[in-house]
Design a binder for these strands. Sequence first.
DNA 1: TTATAATTTGTAAGCAATACAACATTGTAA
DNA 2: TTACAATGTTGTATTGCTTACAAATTATAA
Lengths: 140, 140
Amino acid sequence: MEQIKKLLDSKQIRPTVQRMKILKCLSEKKGHLTVDTIYEIIRKEIPTMSKTTVYNTLSSMAEVGIVVPIVITGKEARYELNTVQHHHFFCERCAKVIDIEVQCDHFCKGEINGHKINELHGYFKGVCKNCLTPEKGRKL
Amino acid sequence: MEQIKKLLDSKQIRPTVQRMKILKCLSEKKGHLTVDTIYEIIRKEIPTMSKTTVYNTLSSMAEVGIVVPIVITGKEARYELNTVQHHHFFCERCAKVIDIEVQCDHFCKGEINGHKINELHGYFKGVCKNCLTPEKGRKL
DNA sequence: TTATAATTTGTAAGCAATACAACATTGTAA
DNA sequence: TTACAATGTTGTATTGCTTACAAATTATAA
């Protein structure tokens, strides 16, 4: 919790209750949360919490690089804390998002084919290990 | 045009005028088109064209692997013909999507960390070469 | 405290995408 | 060719995520 406060201070963002809660959410749940999920979680503690605030907060946090939006399905965005560079695996069966440790050489260089790289996003789609096992899911 | 017809035949999909037009669009414009763009282009030739048909067609084409949806912004999907494996570069300034030739080892293996891979999506975000040049855009 | 700036809130509006039913077209069988 | 079933297309209505906006609230500075 102190960590989160320092993170906000370092970016000159006032650590309001709402903002702290949102980041705490992403920190504890280990990311990949939809706006609605975050909203519902926090609403239990702060009933007056507005979904607009969640949108606003995540949007400004993304701008300064504290959080990262994950866009895979095109239906709804998910968010995670901006930590080390990694990819994602999206299970088409259970819709879960799994972190994949992968480093990309091009990203480190900061440019590719003359284009300046600011962000790198990579994800696999398929069936996760868990859904592949006969006991827990159907074999593909 | 004959190519497109054969492509549809191979997948047992009836080559209707609408479907042919949509694929022709993607073929000629070299992909990265939004549903609305495709719709507007075709509407000039076929005024009765329905946007639902564009959605339906692209959706079923994606299912059999003829086209690939590109989801980057989360605002709207783009589509391209399914050719060789590659990534995309999204310019944050001019919103253009550029093909990037990159092959991923993991994808070839078909699995990662025990998860079965069906699709691989990768994209960079940044400022494209064109927007970086002082004459045409502002330096970042 | 009082004034000013920054945040939050709630509702309204925008917009991509989907659902659905009516209509049209194509393929098949007699 | 005709009748009928299956497949495709169209247009409207609806859903659901996201943004706009202005009022209400809270924090900061004088």
